[in-house]
Amino acid sequence: MSIVKAIKAEFFKFYFDVKRYMFNYIVGLISTAIFLSGLYWAVNALFMQTGQAVAFVGLLLWLFASSALSNATNHLSEERYLGTLERISVTKTLLIHILIARNVVHCLFTLTQSIVVGGILYVVFKPDLGYMLSSWKVSLMAVVIGILIVVTLYAFGFFIASLGMILKRVGAITSILEYLILFFSGIVVPWSSMPAPLRTFSNILPMTWGIKALDSLLNGSDFRWSFAGLIIYTVVITIISTRTFRYATMLVKKKGEYAFY
């Protein structure tokens, strides 16, 4: 119940945020559409016909990676910078619930953004999504994989945010992570064409297992192993991030550095 109330509160606050910064949001949407259009156009030729669907869906899912990583760290650092972190920490809603609620709100906003950008990409490039839409089972599985990827990305973002409680400047590295995920998860560069050391590295990135499962699903090959890997990754990163958050909060409260910017 506490999370539901927190989500309502965060929607209320987000409404004012959008109202005040409407121009920034529109500019952000346009720049994202241009960036993803250019990227999709450039990499389209690299993929086989079925790979086009993976690149198309993968790029849209990458929007969630970008949102999850930047928002996760921004929410905490902004509260510290504004000087409101301690104030919200003493309300009836737990800080962890407030942060989850903010991620839910931003995730829904990103979903809207990805629908708009996806619509533009689809109209302009007409990617071949034939197999993905060929049966309801494949479509449903693709949606399940997509949801799991989003959950993993937000859990990973929360892990980075938790580290940010102790290492105050960790937010600065999120842009590096965003590009690593974009280029080495199999969205832009196909996983099969990566050299062996890069494949090993790629496996620890939060989107890789999901993209592999999606690729196998849309190729009509066996996707069960990748799907199992995705589930394990999601569960493990969720546990690690919540534990890290609890530990980091306790540590900064002991050291008296809870609201330090």
């Binding site: 000087g83 409101t84 301690e86 104030r87 309300t91 009836k92």
Partner: peptide
Amino acid sequence: IRGRFSFLLEGMQNVY
């Protein structure tokens, strides 16, 4: 104490 105690903290903005 959540919801039972309220705090106006020094040096903090306390509002958005």
